[in-house]
Structures are given as C-alpha cells and as structure tokens.
C-alpha cells in the first residue's frame, strides 16, 4: 500500500497552483487534507504523476461571512438572509466544531454534521472542500451542499467559474470539476435566524461510512412549514436534495411540538416521499435499497421533528 512515484509541488498562490494543475499530461491531483487522497493513492486507485499540495497557498484557510457573496452564481433561498458563508479550500472539518465558527442555524447544522465525520484526528486534517471534490456518496458535506444550494468556485488558469452544487455531483467520486481546476471556495447562503436544523446519521460503527444521513432545515410560521431543506447522503450514487419531500411540506401544519409524528403526519409523509421518490439507493453490503429507503424515511421524519423542535426553541430574533 505505497503510492506510485509522482512529482510534488507546494505552490504559494492560487495562480501557481492552477498553473501546476494545467498540464493535462500529468494527471495532477490536489492535496489538501489528504485524508482521502493519500488513502486512495496508497490503494493505487489514484495514481497521479503530480501532486499539488495547496497547504502553503495563502488565503485558502479563510472562513468568512459576508453580506453578499463576491460574485458567481448566487442563489438566495426563501430562508436566506442575503448573507453568505465562504469556506476556503483549506478549512478543516474541525473548524466547524468550534462554537460560533459559523453564525446562526447554519453554524449549528455544520457543527452537528462535522461531529459525524470520521474522528478527531481525521477532522483536524480533512477539509470540507476536499470532501466535496472527493464526492463520496455518503459524504455529509456533499448532502449539505446540495440541500443548501452551495456554490462551488473553481479556479483555472483561464479564470474562475462558479458551479451550483446541484450541477456539481455526477456520480460516485465524479464531479463537474475538471482536472485542471482547483476548488478554491465554497459559498453557502446563511440560514435565516429562526430556522430549525437537525442532522441525523445512521451507520454501523463509529468508524464506518453512513448507511444513510439526513440534513434538515425548516422554517415555521405559526406552526406551518414555510420552507424546508432536506439533504440525503448515501441514498443514491450522489448526494440528493429531497425536493419532492420538501415540496410536500410547504404549508403543512405540524401540530404541537414534541408529539411523536403519527403515520399521516407531514413529517412522516415527507419521509416516505423522500425515501420512495427522491432517493435512489444502490445496493451495498448490509444495506440493500429496500432497507436504505426505509432508513431514509425514518431519518427524514426524525430529522424534521428535531429541526422543528430546534426552531421552536429559537424564535426569530433571538438566534445568536
């Protein structure tokens, strides 16, 4: 389990990095946290002839909030505030576990999701952008990216382009990123104060990939769902935003908080819709598609219920 020989460069600027990536003959790979790339290189599934280590590139470790994004395909959902979180390519998973690293409901949701990723030493090295670029179907960040309308900024020698997360993921470990492009920045619209969030993950042991994971964000007004976002991990060959399930929720009355949703409850219905219509699980050992659909339905229901409870606990204006 040793990597094949390769050349190594450690550029100091994005410009140098994309120039290094620009030579198509070298099958270059970007090294950020390295927690999946080096594993794949050791398995000789990744056999680059050039490794571009971006860890010394200045400015990529920034985690910032701005009133508006700095360009690109901005999309502001109904529960966006116009504020945008910008995550640089070197922001490690662990950064999102620190209290207050990201404000408001988005910060709470990211903290919940980050805690589910591998374990602390991996989270201290691995990056969000690296996970998105690796595009494992079970990745927590990938599910969040599609659910929350993230925009991925890809830099190349001839300029940058922004790709919406929904267009980015094409299959297992397959994305719209070209080999010559560097994923430098990920933008997430902030979630409006008062949004309730939850993250539910089901896996076999502390170390295994998720069999299913669900991210949920809901906004309620007077007990009625105003907006909902649902992301599914490992429910298809790529991350899924459960749009049909989301739609089934808009305008639904969710009843008193805390009650266990009965079969006909909007959350249970949304779970069923997500599982039957949004998800498209592929077979894997110990979790055939029937089982994974079932788990998706349960987790969507549970995540929505938790998200609603989270929203009830944090009425608008006191969410800080």
């Amino acid at each position: 389990m040793k990597p094949v020989p390769f050349d190594y460069v450690a550029p100091r600027t994005v410009r140098q990095a994309v120039e290094a990536l620009g030579d198509p003959s070298r099958e270059a790979r970007v090294l950020a946290g390295g927690q999946s790339l080096i594993m794949e290189m050791r398995l000789r599934r990744a056999t680059p002839r050039l490794v571009v280590d971006i860890n010394r590139v200045g400015g990529l470790g920034r985690l910032t909030v701005s009133a508006q994004g700095t360009g690109g395909a901005q999309e502001t959902g109904a529960h966006g505030t116009g504020g945008v979180l910008e995550v640089g390519a070197l922001v490690r998973h662990a950064a999102f576990e620190r209290p207050g690293a990201v404000p408001g409901p988005l910060g709470r949701l990211f903290a919940l999701a980050a805690a589910e990723i591998a374990h602390p030493p991996i989270r201290a090295r691995g990056t969000m952008a690296g996970s998105l670029a690796w595009a494992h179907p079970a990745s927590e960040w990938c599910a969040l990216a599609v659910a929350l309308d993230a925009v991925l900024v890809l830099d190349a020698v001839d300029g940058a382009r922004a790709v919406a997360a929904r267009d980015f993921f094409l299959g297992p470990h397959l994305t719209a990123r070209e080999a010559r492009e560097l994923l430098t920045l990920v933008r997430f619209p902030l979630l409006a104060d008062g949004t309730g969030v939850a993250f539910a993950e089901h896996r076999r042991t502390c170390f295994s990939f998720a069999q299913v994971a669900v991210a949920a964000a809901v906004t309620l007004r007077d007990g009625v769902v105003e907006d909902a976002r649902i992301g599914l991990a490992n429910c298809a060959d790529r991350p899924v935003r459960a749009r049909l399930a989301e739609r089934s929720l808009i305008g639904a009355e969710i009843g008193p908080p805390g009650a266990r949703p009965a079969a006909g409850h909007p959350f249970a219905r949304a779970g069923a819709v997500a599982a039957e219509r949004d998800a498209g699980p592929v077979p894997e050992p110990y979790a055939d598609p029937d089982y994974r659909r079932h788990v998706a339905a349960v987790l969507v229901r549970r995540a929505l219920r938790e998200a609603a409870a989270d929203a009830e606990r944090r009425p608008e204006g006191v969410d800080r």
């Binding site: 076999r204 042991t205 502390c206 170390f207 295994s208 990939f209 050992p285 110990y286």
Partner: peptide
C-alpha cells in the same frame, strides 16, 4: 460479504470490516 463472483467486498479495508471501536 462476498460478491457474486466470490470476491470479498471490503473495498475500504477497515472502514468495511468493522471491528468494535471504543464507541
């Protein structure tokens, strides 16, 4: 687990063959 061709399905090593962790 073995696939239909009799090959063990443990593509991610100890992320697939799961021995107990402290958790």
């Amino acid at each position: 687990p073995y696939d239909g061709d009799g090959v063990p399905m443990l593509p991610w090593g100890l992320l697939d063959y799961l021995i107990p962790t402290a958790a």
